[in-house]
Design a protein around this nucleic acid. Sequence first.
DNA 1: AGCCAATTCACCCAAAAGAGGGGATTGCAA
DNA 2: TTGCAATCCCCTCTTTTGGGTGAATTGGCT
Lengths: 209, 209
Amino acid sequence: MSIYERRVVIVEDNSELSNLYSFLVNGINNYEVVAVYRKCEDVIKEIGHDRPDLIMMDLELPGMSGTEGIRQIKKKYPRIDILVVTIHENDESIFQALSAGACGYLSKTAGLTEIEKAFEQIEMGGAYMTSRIARKVIGSFQKSYFSPLTKRETEILTLISKGKTYSMIADELGIANDTVKSHIKNIYSKLHVDTKADAISLAMKEKFI
Amino acid sequence: MSIYERRVVIVEDNSELSNLYSFLVNGINNYEVVAVYRKCEDVIKEIGHDRPDLIMMDLELPGMSGTEGIRQIKKKYPRIDILVVTIHENDESIFQALSAGACGYLSKTAGLTEIEKAFEQIEMGGAYMTSRIARKVIGSFQKSYFSPLTKRETEILTLISKGKTYSMIADELGIANDTVKSHIKNIYSKLHVDTKADAISLAMKEKFI
DNA sequence: AGCCAATTCACCCAAAAGAGGGGATTGCAA
DNA sequence: TTGCAATCCCCTCTTTTGGGTGAATTGGCT
């Protein structure tokens, strides 16, 4: 038996589910549920008192969004691990939650074995997610294999997206200012846009850059 | 027994290792090694003939870099899965390889069980990586918990990084043009920079945005 | 109650950058 | 040999940007 306990707080607005999780988590060696809340606001209020090591959090909550909650909690208590538990395997919400500081992503259909596995990995300093989620996460930053832009154009649009001016880009690439302008014109015509902002957002949306 | 075989190509410049992998992979049901190469250039040349479903690739190779190899292979054959096998758990190289299109990351110390697990996950359309790697991948896009920028400033710098002009931002946020300018001035003074480009690159480097 | 930070807005100015138009050359690859 | 990529040049006009200076309002923390 261990000399320490990992304190767990559950945030879930469905009480059937939170009861189930409490039961399951309390059954895991070294883990104990110290509190259950329905809203992010409540966790944040009581966090100093509860002193959790791990928070299991639903993303679809009344009031403050789960992602915003994660951000605020991690800002004040960066050492608390946050495991997201949700039904939606929506790419964007996964990405947002992980960016905000979650260290894992569990489906609501997960059973005891999966929860145990996730806890173990997180305790060892890793992150937990199913391989399907991992695929989505990777997919979210993979570039498109089919871009209408040439290598040079992609390079230049990338620099533009970093806020560089035409002349900075020209210097950096060792080409003339007019050449950069020329490339930009071609980029705009290929993407059917006529401003930097549109070119960048389209290119990012389509993962050309 | 299955009616199909998954064709595997191994790219590894150390022949002891490639022999070991060949042996292990051939022992896995439904998988067969159809070729072994020492360089990316060779895989690419023979890829039409080999018709692999999966490529196990080392990143530290003579000639073309593994990452560039992945990019080229995925561009021509997006359906081929590429599993990176490497010693280095360097954050940047992991991220580069996965961005380029790899769907998994295996350590060279991995044994049969782990290879089998990785293959299985990949075949199911997932991605494979250890939880430690997953943590690094997540870490690479997590925002800093301690930014000198306020919420509004972060919001505005993010829009700037998308190529928006002050007036576009003003419209989007429903505030005056001069207010946007005001925020920008504060951002510049906090970050000790005086151009968009510097602000964006610093903020990205420090993960403020 | 008082202070500070965040957010908001205004006005002035000069330099730089952006977007669009035109046209031209080189070199490689299908 | 036609086409595309990449390079460069010229002209014009409008918008953007960065800096200076100052100030009102709000909300939270002490």
